[in-house]
């Protein structure tokens, strides 16, 4: 069983890490699109839309991501919809991220002073114009650091997709461990690769927060 050299282990892990990256990107992109939609629903003035999004967000924030993965994978299968591990993971992570992202973004919109709305209203701007020209440009700036920060959670969240059999970094680690019986070495490498993916993101988030905050204080 010892035909695996250290280089083989690392090479296989790095190859599998591509799928972690790809799944993260898809979850982030999908989560952003759905999340943006939810944000608009949440800050609309339609009571029914606000309720729908609140329930959605409560469900996805209040249940473990693993259960969401199981439901997407096994649940849809039971309903006769054939989903691959890849599709189920992408779907579950998209929905999960969208709930958190929309909550972050709603907070950003609501953190703007009420006076911005009132001044717009007095000048005759309607709801959409106020959103487009006044609220969103400012909210976007506040939203960037926490959004980048949340992307770290998405990268780490992809590890759970290993449990439904999707071969990404963690699953590759488990498989390599089964072949080499060197858990410490294998999983230390797995952790290191996750760290190398996440660390730049959290640093970027901190950097952006400092930079945008300074700009915000001048405002």
């Amino acid at each position: 069983m010892s035909q695996f050299t250290d280089w083989d282990i690392l090479r296989n892990l790095l190859l599998a890490a591509r799928w972690t990256v790809l799944l993260s990107l898809i979850a982030f992109a999908g989560g952003s699109i759905v999340g943006l939609l939810l944000t608009f629903m949440r800050i609309s003035r339609r009571r029914s839309l606000i309720w729908v999004t609140r329930i959605y967000i409560e469900i996805f924030q209040g249940t473990p991501l693993l259960m969401q993965l199981f439901i997407a994978f096994f649940g849809l299968g039971l309903l006769g919809i054939d989903v691959s591990a890849w599709t189920a993971a992408a779907l579950a992570l998209t929905l999960f991220s969208s709930a958190f992202l929309s909550d972050i973004w709603r907070g950003c919109v609501e953190s703007l002073p009420k006076g911005q709305w009132e001044a717009s209203r007095c000048l005759g701007l309607n709801y959409l114009q106020t959103m487009r020209y006044i609220i969103l440009p400012q909210a976007l700036r506040i939203a960037i650091p926490p959004t980048v920060g949340f992307s770290v959670q998405i990268v780490k969240g992809t590890a759970l997709a290993s449990i439904i059999g999707f071969v990404e970094l963690t699953k590759a680690g488990t498989m390599l461990n089964n072949a080499t019986f060197e858990p410490f070495k294998v999983f230390a490498l797995v952790a290191l690769i996750y760290f190398l993916l996440c660390y730049p993101l959290s640093r970027a988030s901190q950097y952006l927060e400092e930079r945008l905050n300074v700009a915000g204080k001048r405002a």
Binding site: G115, A119, P137, Q138, A219
Partner: peptide
Amino acid sequence: QSFNLFPH
């Protein structure tokens, strides 16, 4: 009172 200019 608080001006409410658009800072951006």
